[in-house]
């Protein structure tokens, strides 16, 4: 009996080892991607980073590298979606912003060559643009810090007896209050904005209803940012920045975080 139990354990251990042996470690995938990038094989870079992403490792660097590789392969919609995610999460993402702009320009040039007209980017409106000046974490953190500074300034102004110190404390309270107000506006705008998505591919149709056999009403541009307004099965109801609405397959959209 004991020998039988030991055999079962041994078998399970071997099976578990076998299963584990199939998965490539993330670091190895990153190395593969690095080597592929060095020889200009962007398709291999994409494959490696997509595996990393599928494993749940969606760090800013991974998304940045994946987006850059997508852009080299002229898969601009997916590239823009990756860059947008990082841009919305990271506070100082200068390289990401540059590549996002470059991907949009490349896409616009391609569209212009095909159809004679192109749109680089659509303005989402001043209130939404205000919310996108800072990531949510940064705006909330800045606001909290400024609020604490306001409180500290008030406390110091009450305690001190020197006139110069009182004036300084008052100025500090005013400045910190303005920063807190601005940060709160940014955070409120971001929190109140609708959830967004990016169209991943070219020729995506806007359908009247959430069905495969619905007659398409129009199209959305690759890389276009759309507002998510609901979901039904595999379809997401969207609204473009120019006011058109319809249903799009969820796999044709890259969802952006708040």
């Amino acid at each position: 009996m004991r020998a039988r139990r030991a055999g079962v354990f041994l078998g399970l251990a071997l099976a578990a080892h076998g299963l584990g042996a199939g998965a490539v470690p993330a670091r190895e995938l990153v190395d593969r991607a690095r080597h592929a990038a060095a020889r200009g094989d962007h398709a291999a870079v994409v494959r490696a980073y997509e595996e990393v992403r599928a494993a749940g490792l969606e760090s800013d660097d991974v998304l940045y590298n994946l987006g850059t590789a997508y852009a080299h392969l002229e898969r601009y919609g997916e590239a823009i979606a990756c860059f947008e995610v990082v841009d919305r999460r990271a506070t100082l993402a200068l390289g990401v912003s540059h590549n996002l702009r470059a991907a949009r320009l490349r896409l616009a040039r391609r569209d212009a060559a095909r159809t004679g007209r192109a749109v680089v980017d659509s303005e989402p409106g001043p209130w939404i643009a205000l919310g996108e000046t800072l990531p949510l974490d940064a705006s909330v953190g800045l606001t909290v810090l400024a609020e604490l500074l306001v409180l500290a300034g008030l406390w110091w102004r009450r305690r001190t007896e020197q006139e110069l110190a009182r004036v300084g404390a008052t100025l500090a309270v005013i400045v910190a209050g303005a920063v807190a107000l601005l940060g709160a506006l940014v955070a409120t705008s971001r929190l109140g904005a609708p959830p967004w998505a990016v169209v991943l591919r070219d020729g995506v149709s806007l359908r009247q209803t959430a069905r495969e056999d619905a007659i398409p009403e129009g199209r959305v541009r690759e890389g276009e940012r759309v507002e998510r307004r609901g979901r039904e099965g595999e379809f997401i109801r969207v609204r473009t920045l120019d006011g058109r609405g319809g249903w799009v397959r969820s796999r044709e959209l890259g969802l952006l975080p708040r």
Binding site: V30, A37, V45, S59, V62, Y64, N65, A71, A102
Partner: peptide, 9 residues
């Protein structure tokens, strides 16, 4: 495009 990051986190 800016190059890929060599040692991505």
């Amino acid at each position: 495009l800016e190059p890929l990051r060599e040692e991505p986190s």
